[in-house]
Nucleic acid binder design. Structure first.
Lengths: 232, 232
DNA sequence: AGAATAGTGTCTGTCAGACACTATAGA
DNA sequence: TCTATAGTGTCTGACAGACACTATTCT
């Protein structure tokens, strides 16, 4: 017992930072996957990420942002830690720890860039099962998806899958794509009003019927959490 | 750009696992603090934790459990990841990452052991401010406390601060100690019934008035999450 | 006018808060 | 019987679901 905390006494585990970047395209939830250019799992698809560069990154948040920016050319609108995954068997090189972030972007902000590169693609969440995926990233994506679904029930995070200006119907669509079932438009409008985190713009926008009200997130506001979930 | 993911290219950050172990004693929420026996911050109080031992620990969960067991001699009833904290300035030795767990135990399970050692103590959550604390552990404890308070509003996690058999009044007390305000006994009873995660025992127990019904957690059940928070 | 989408009014159901009520133990 | 604690009955209020209704735009 009585071991000292000497920094050199233990082999340091392999530490990486990965991100599950989600967006909604059409009516489907998508996650960004990149083709691995190195061993292990060369050629398979995995989450964007890599090692911390302690000379550049002031924190792991910045590692995640830096790696995402390399692949998408922009910073995501929303970024938060999911959790770490660790184990002796998840990486053939030995004991490894990966800190996973989950992130959201508007499709419009990144798709043009993604389309130009071959080593990155949006994968439909329902098609992950069929893809050759590296490490335990399938399992990680599943957990990230569950967390996102949970958050969509009690908060307004899904707005971060939308462009700056958006309508109630657009927000309703992304929420439905995330949780995989329909919600009541009325309930959403009640929450938009109660949250007080959106600006009602003077502008309206064509929609095929009556013009739709545009909203935007008030600058600097925090995401609002409700005390009740939408029903499952 | 085009950097390779060579494992040796970057200085590996310092990676540690720490735990915020909570319990309720009397009507106060307490957190376990240990006196540091090494630099940095020798002599100050910090969270129990340390380096992963890749030869022993199959995962970081086991690192957390191992370190807690060294200090308390038992495994906590509840353990889950809080989040990681990282940065260039939080440890004088350089860029560091700490994975923090938050954990719950029944006071009865550990207090006798804690009392016999000088380098570990239960600190009242309200007195952390006055203690000389190592690293950013004050900040970490604050975040762990907030998460615990949040969980107490929508789940039954506080039972893990109680012994195997407990009464409604005991559960009410620990919840109130955690969230720092009183709740309705009736609301708690409704939730106990709805959760279906407790066994009603044949036994009752003295309380100064009418005998109180004893409950225990059904073996193997998962913690239940409610769709609504108790009000704040 | 008719179709399509936007947005409102309002009833119901669920569950937390409040609090008075009953029940049962010991002194 | 008195006090203390356990536990119930039940009303209210907040808010989500359901869905019919009105409003506005285009063709």
């Amino acid at each position: 017992m009585n071991k000292s905390y000497d920094i050199n006494e233990f082999k340091n585990p392999l530490f990486t930072v990965d991100s599950a970047l989600f967006t909604v395209i059409g009516n489907s939830l998508k996650v960004l996957m990149v083709k691995r250019a190195n061993e292990p799992f060369l050629g398979r698809w995995g989450l964007p990420g890599g090692f911390v560069d302690v000379d550049i990154d002031d924190s792991t948040d910045l590692t995640a942002l830096r790696k995402l920016k390399e692949k998408t050319s922009v910073a995501p609108q929303y970024l938060e830690q999911l959790r770490t995954f660790s184990g002796i068997n998840r990486d053939p090189r030995g004991f490894s720890v990966t800190l996973v972030y989950f992130a959201l972007v508007a499709e419009q902000d990144v798709s043009s860039h993604i389309d130009t590169v071959e080593d990155a693609q949006w994968v439909d969440i329902k098609q992950i099962a069929d893809l050759p995926v590296a490490f335990d990233h399938k399992h990680i994506i599943e957990q990230a998806k569950e967390r996102l679904q949970q958050k969509a029930l009690y908060s307004m995070v899904p707005v971060y899958c939308l462009p700056e200006y958006f309508t109630v119907s657009q927000l309703k669509s992304v929420i439905e794509a995330i949780i995989g079932k329909t919600i009541q438009r009325k309930s959403l409008i009640r929450r938009i009003e109660a949250a007080e985190m959106f600006e009602v713009l003077d502008e309206k926008v064509k929609s095929g019927g009556r013009l739709a009200q545009l909203y935007k997130v008030k600058p600097g506001v925090d995401i609002v959490n409700f005390e009740r979930n939408l029903s499952v």
